Simulated assay, not measured.
Amino acid sequence: MLAGMSVEEAVEASPAKPRRRRAGARFGVILVTVLALLFGVPWATLVWSGNAWPAPVFIVGTALFVVAAAGFPVLMFRGHGRHDDRSSRIADTTLGVIWQLFVWSVLGQALGLVLALAGVGGPVRSRVVAGLVLLVSVVLLLWGHREAMRVSRVRNIDVTIPRLGRGLDGLRVVLITDTHYGPIDRSRWSRGVVEVINSLNPDVVAHTGDIADGEVPQRISQASPLGDVRASMARVYVTGNHEYMSGAQGWVEYMSSLGWEALHNRHLVVSRGGDSLIVAGVDDRTAASSGVPGHHMDHEAALAGTDPDLPVLLLAHQPQQITGAVAHGIDLQLSGHTHGGQMWPFHYLVRIDQPVLQGLTRHSGRTQLYTSRGTGFWGPPFRIFAPSEITLLTLYAEK
C-alpha cells in the first residue's frame, strides 16, 4: 500500500496507471493508423502502385513521404501545443497538402478501376492516375490558398423576425467569426476586414469567437485593428472553443479594452424608434471543462432581468448550442465554428458533430440559426469549396 493512503484511496488509485497506459496505447494505435492512411494512400498512388518509376524516383518519393509522416506529429505538437509559430506553419501546410493528396488519391483509385475496365493496362494506367491526382491537388491547393488569404467576400442575408418592432425594421448586423489570428501574420488582412465591415454601415457588429490561436500578446498586432470597427449601436463578442486554448479571460479583457462588449453570459439592449432588441451572448460549450474560473455556458445568466416580450439575438459560437437557444425562446442565434468545412470533403465530418454546416436554418416555430462559414481559417492555409465570409444580416419585422 502507498504510504499515507487509506485502503479505499489505494484501491481507487491502483488501477489509474494501467488505465492511463491503456488510453495512451489506444491513442498511439489510432495515431499510427491515421498517419499510415493519410500518408500511405498518396504514397501508394503517386510512388508505388504499378507506376514502375525508375529506382531513384521511387527512393526519393518514398523518403519524402516517410520524413513528412514522421515529422508531422512532432511539428503539430510543437506548433499547437507550445505555440511555436514556425512549426505550426510547416505542420498546418503539410496537413492541407496531404489531405488533398489523400482525397484525390482515393478518387484516383476509382478512376484507375474505370481505366482498367476500359482496357488501359500496365504502368500507363497508374501513371495517368498519379499525374491527374497531382495536377488536381496542386491546382486546388493554389486556388485554395488564394481563397484563404484574401479578404472575405460579403454575404447578404435577410432575416424576418416576427417579434421585431417596426422601429428596428432593417437593422444591419455584421457578423464575423473564426478569425483565428495565428502563426501566419495576417495584420494586413485584418485591416482589410475592418475596412469592409465599416463600409457596410452596420448598426451592430458581432464576433462569435475563435478570435485567435495564441494569447493576446502573441496576436495583438493582428487583433488590434478590431478597435477601429464602427457600429452605430453596439460591437459585441463571445468566446469560441479556441479561446479556451489561448487565454480566454485575456481575450475577453482585451476585446473590452478595444471598446467591444464581451457578452460573457450577459446581454445588452439596443433601441431605435421606440422598439428594443436584446443582444445576448453565452460562452462556448467547452468553457465549463476548460478550467477557466467563471466560464461556462449559461443562458439563464445571459437573459437575467430581460423583458420576455422583447425579441432576442443570441451570440453562441457553435451551432450545436442551438438546443439551448430553442429552450430559452431565442429568436435568432448567430454562430460560426464549422468554417463551412474549410477543405472539401471535410464538410461531411463536420456534419457528424454539428447540426448545421452553414446558412440560415429554422429550429422551432420561433428560433432561427445563422451559421457563418467563418471569416478566417484554422490550421491549413487553404479554403477549398468553402469560401470565407463577412456576413451582413438585415433584420426585418414581419409585414
Rank of each mutant, 00 (worst) to 15 (best):
L2N: 11
G4W: 13
V7D: 13
K17V: 12
P18F: 04
A36S: 14
L38T: 09
W43F: 14
A44G: 02
T45M: 09
N51I: 02
P56F: 08
F58H: 08
T62Q: 11
V67W: 01
A69N: 02
G71M: 10
G71H: 02
V74I: 15
R78K: 08
G79P: 00
H83E: 09
R86V: 15
S88M: 13
W99C: 11
F102Q: 04
V103N: 03
W104R: 00
L113K: 08
L115N: 14
L117E: 15
A118N: 12
G119Y: 11
V120E: 14
G121S: 14
A130S: 09
A130N: 07
S137Q: 12
G144T: 00
R146E: 14
M149W: 01
N156H: 15
I157N: 05
T160L: 05
T160N: 01
R163C: 00
L164W: 01
G167K: 08
L168I: 06
L168N: 05
D169M: 09
L171I: 10
R172A: 05
V174K: 02
L175Y: 01
I176M: 14
T177S: 15
T179Y: 07
I184M: 06
D185V: 12
S187W: 01
R188V: 13
S190V: 05
G192D: 04
D203R: 03
V204K: 06
V204F: 02
D210N: 10
D210V: 14
D213N: 12
G214A: 08
A223Y: 00
G227D: 08
G227F: 10
D228S: 13
V229M: 06
A234I: 12
T239F: 05
E243I: 05
M255T: 11
G259S: 07
W260F: 14
W260T: 03
N265A: 06
I278E: 07
G281H: 02
G291P: 07
G294W: 11
A301L: 12
A301K: 10
L303M: 06
L313A: 03
A316T: 01
Q318K: 12
Q321W: 02
T323H: 11
A327W: 02
L332T: 03
L334K: 02
T338Y: 13
G341N: 06
M343K: 00
W344Q: 07
I352E: 07
Q354F: 10
L357C: 13
L357Y: 09
Q358R: 11
L360S: 03
T367F: 02
Y370Q: 00
G374Y: 05
G374W: 06
T375W: 03
G376P: 00
G379H: 04
G379C: 03
F382H: 08
I384D: 01
F385R: 12
P387F: 07
E398N: 11
